[in-house]
Design a protein around this nucleic acid. Sequence first.
DNA 1: AATTGGACGTAATGTCATAACGTTAGCTTG
DNA 2: CAAGCTAACGTTATGACATTACGTCCAATT
Lengths: 132, 132
Amino acid sequence: MTSHQKLTRNQALVLGSLEKAGQPLSAYTILDQLRDDGLRAPLQVYRALDKLLESGLVHRLESINAFVACSHPHSHSHGSAAFAICERCGRVDEFSDAVVQKRLASWSSEHGFKPSRTTVEIRGECAACLGN
Amino acid sequence: MTSHQKLTRNQALVLGSLEKAGQPLSAYTILDQLRDDGLRAPLQVYRALDKLLESGLVHRLESINAFVACSHPHSHSHGSAAFAICERCGRVDEFSDAVVQKRLASWSSEHGFKPSRTTVEIRGECAACLGN
DNA sequence: AATTGGACGTAATGTCATAACGTTAGCTTG
DNA sequence: CAAGCTAACGTTATGACATTACGTCCAATT
């Protein structure tokens, strides 16, 4: 993909691992998957993740301490993504709700709060796991 | 109506510690503060926190791995709280936005997702820290 | 050539959370 | 009461997640 062009080797490996998985992975799981590619220490993964998070290619799921490739890597709407996380199968749906964003921005501006990063995560069970 | 169970000694100590702090604390910080009261192991704190979370007296802040006493312990609106967390001073404002809750519930129902717990956290800088 | 800055490699450590074990205290029921 | 049950407790050990600290490499400037 062209979006990988300016990535370093480690960054490309980490992003590739997440994209291949199609679901959230912990930093240590990523590390395990990349041992054969020469990665040996957590910091190599965390450093790559930091850059990928900065550029919006990867999201962090705070409630499960995991990372996931962005579903819409070309829509530069960082910080505004919301996630539905299935606790049974691990599937994650990334979505974005303008109304939610607007309400949170309103609260912030009404209270003199300057937001830098927002987390919206719903944990539960996905349709597939509910047997339908 | 479950929520008015009497607290055990450890639960009361942990809740007291959080209330006294008036800001989020990590489990290990709580433990340090309660050593003189006889607590010695992380599990004693985590077990108490589990019960306090269940009963809605305490919230967990996923994005900073910390816990905070509920600001409105008598409004049985669990799972629906949102938080604005100041990354400079640590202050946390708990609020609740019906529109946000409604939009997230709508997304869930449209996608056959059964939500069990929702996290909404804004990190940034509070009015006081912005010098205003 | 010298300098600089970003990414890298490695080891050690720090921070957050739970597993697994047995024990204690309060309840309830014959 | 005694037997049995259950929820909470205490302790040790371990697992899981993340960063500090230090030095090296290399390519782009100056």
